[in-house]
Design a protein around this nucleic acid. Structure first.
Lengths: 173, 173
DNA sequence: GTTAGTGCAAACCTTTTGCAGCTCT
DNA sequence: AGAGCTGCAAAAGGTTTGCACTAAC
């Protein structure tokens, strides 16, 4: 697990590996998903009921500034919160289905090309990149076509994606 | 001005062109910059002191759903608010200097390539894309190197960009 | 023993909502 | 005339801050 690498990296920086941080690191790195602060908080609380939400935010900020995790918006599907993932060696784009919320990752040469062109064109020193693509996955395209036959026309005219049937919504505990 | 096109597009949809909306459309389309809701609100208030902040939010949401404006995050430089620009025909990336806040736009073939690959690879129907690149512009690279010679070492170790000397900060009126 | 890190409560910023009244078409 | 919009007040959602206490090194 890259978990150990993260810990080494933090130790080198003189960051203390508190119990709370170990729990959070493990969760961020272990879960295959893109977690937001609230979800991470809930998972962490299961392991340590005393762990505070504020600690989650502070830890995420620290990890972001340390370059160990990347912050995503995922097209604000599901709200204005941020999502996090451990920083991979390989740059990739996030593809979000605006109907079902599924997130795919795309690794491909256009991203490296883009990076190089921006560097040479502007003499820009790139630290972070974020590419997000929103639309409908192949599965939802079919479902949507089916829905449209029956659904009210007003929504289609306004081009407002049909409200998700299952996924988001997050409230304070 | 594309302003007229926007109005036509809205009229077609049966959206009422109220005085408030005309003011806002003009500002979004006219200002060369990427405005956030608060800035837009301030500018709008100068033209009509009665215009409410809520109307700004409602109008932006409506324009976004109508596909007339795009919503940007600009790497959350300056806060968690969103920025807006009238939707251009040409896809482009936003390049944000994390030190001075300057935003450049990059039009180039990697973006179209990326789009095509994602469509064919996943059978994905793309509605919106957002590519943001954060780092240091050529100008700030020099300034930063100079600063580093004198600055405290702690900040460098933590890899935290030096706090901006001039730009952000936004408070409620 | 220091100093960084934590928990708690309260603040903060950005955005949304409910509702009565106004205004485009 | 009447649906669609607006303004106002209030709330919600997400994140940050101040401060006294705790724990990692």
């Amino acid at each position: 697990m890259a978990n150990a690498d993260m810990k080494d990296s933090l130790r080198e920086k003189g960051v203390r590996l508190t119990r709370q941080r170990q729990i959070l690191l493990e969760l961020i790195d272990g879960s295959g998903k893109h977690l937001d602060a609230e979800e991470l908080f809930r998972l962490a609380q299961a392991k340590d009921p005393k762990l505070n939400r504020v600690t989650v935010y502070r830890t995420l900020k620290m990890l972001k500034h340390s370059g160990l995790v990347d912050e995503l918006d995922l097209m604000h599907y599901g709200g204005d919160q941020h999502y996090y993932e451990t920083r991979l060696k390989q740059e990739h784009a996030h593809i979000i289905c605006l109907r079902c919320g599924k997130v795919e990752e795309f690794f491909g040469e256009p991203l490296a090309r883009l990076r190089k062109q921006v560097e040479s064109h502007f003499g820009f020193e790139i630290l972070i990149t974020r590419t997000e693509i929103g639309g409908y996955c192949s599965h939802c395209q079919v479902l949507r076509a089916r829905e449209m036959e029956h659904a009210a026309v007003s929504a289609e005219l306004a081009d407002i994606p049909a409200p998700p049937k299952s996924p988001p919504s997050r409230k304070r505990g």
